[in-house]
Simulated assay, not measured.
Amino acid sequence: MKRINHADNIISAVESGSVGSRLTASWRRSLNKHGLDPTLSHAPRRFESAEINDRRDSMGSFMTVATPKLDQLFQMVGQTGCCVLLTDREGVVLDLRSSDGDAATFEKWGLWYGADWSEEAEGTNGIGTCIAEARQITIHRNEHFLSRNTAMSCMDAPIFGPDGELIAALDVSSCRADQTESYSRLISGVVAQTAKQIETEAFRAAFPKARIVTSPEERPEGAVLLAVDSDDLIVGATRAARRVFGLGQGGALTPRPASDILGRDTTASALERAERAALKRAIARSGGNLSAAARALGIGRATLYRRMGRLGIDVA
């Protein structure tokens, strides 16, 4: 019986003509739209340091916000044969973490600074397909389009910027042959959570003078955050908030009265209730330490006192 190799399996699945899964759709894009050959053997294209620096600079303060989160994520997965990568919206690696013992393997595979992991260049892969489909994804071994990438497992999550547009992808890739799909799913959850944390911190940093109102509603795609200025106008919204309140998917946000978006009842505005809930959560998490709660909210202690007084929260 003829043995079906990886490339044959890819081509057969694409040429079958069936609608298939999202994975098959990505394989089809790789083969037909991007014109890639699954037997392609050369390493990913890598940009020089100057290009990498330009790309990092173009992202402004985002990289500063992301750096400590990359460190924290690597502390959790670094000893399991995994590396942590952060790419821009085009799939170019701008930052990474790997152990000294695994670094040579990851660099050989192209999981390194400046490498282009877009779907257009590498076919179906964690980074590129995450960006192409703007969703959390795991590409495990033979799910990769190129045969040379089937030794790795990649767990990825998109990161959306303060304007709601995709700004980066967060990746954890494993070089261990014994890594199971169930363990990959476990890591995938940590990657998604870290991506949401980066997105939240970047949003807060983008609106330093606004008060940030957090909805108690949890959304799988990220935190529901609104930035409200001193005139009670909503001047910013996360991607999840844009979806909840019908503010469009991305781009510049036209300032709108908070009361128009959130509505009012006979006792207090929904905005005030959401803000009160956000303050109480921060105070509870800090064990009643108002200075710590203010820091967590990104405001000064005096500002916290004023808001507590306005919202009827007992300072004592």
Results as ranks from 00 to 15, higher is better:
G246C: 13
Q136A: 15
E120T: 02
F245V: 04
A195E: 04
A237R: 04
T194E: 02
T194R: 00
L166M: 12
P162G: 03
I159W: 01
T124V: 09
N142W: 13
S188T: 07
G250P: 04
R211K: 14
L226S: 09
D232F: 05
T138I: 14
E165H: 08
H140V: 06
T200G: 06
A206M: 07
D163I: 13
V213E: 00
D178E: 14
I198G: 09
E120Y: 02
I212K: 00
A237I: 07
S182H: 15
G248W: 07
V224L: 12
G251P: 01
N125C: 11
S153G: 14
Q193K: 15
A205S: 11
D231S: 10
G248M: 08
K196R: 14
K196L: 15
A121Y: 00
H140L: 03
P208K: 09
R242Y: 03
A240R: 08
E181I: 12
Q136V: 11
G248I: 11
I139R: 09
E199Y: 02
A202C: 12
E201Y: 14
I167M: 09
E165L: 13
R219S: 15
V224F: 07
P208R: 03
L146P: 10
S188R: 08
M155C: 15
R141F: 01
F145S: 02
A151Q: 14
G126C: 11
R135K: 14
F203A: 08
L226P: 05
T180W: 07
H144D: 03
P220M: 08
P216W: 02
G222W: 00
V235R: 12
K209L: 10
I159K: 04
A240T: 09
R211I: 03
L146K: 07
A205D: 13
G161R: 01
G164D: 07
S184H: 05
R148A: 02
E199C: 12
V190R: 15
P158E: 05
G126A: 13
R239V: 01
F245Y: 14
R135W: 01
P220N: 09
A227L: 03
E181Y: 08
I139P: 00
P220V: 07
S173P: 02
S174G: 06
P162T: 00
P162C: 11
I212N: 00
S147Y: 09
V235Y: 04
D232H: 03
A151Y: 05
G250M: 14
L186Q: 13
V244E: 11
I198K: 06
I127T: 04
E217L: 14
G164M: 02
G250S: 15
V244W: 13
R243S: 15
T138D: 11
A157P: 06
I187S: 04
T214E: 15
R219E: 15
A192H: 13
Q197M: 14
L146M: 10
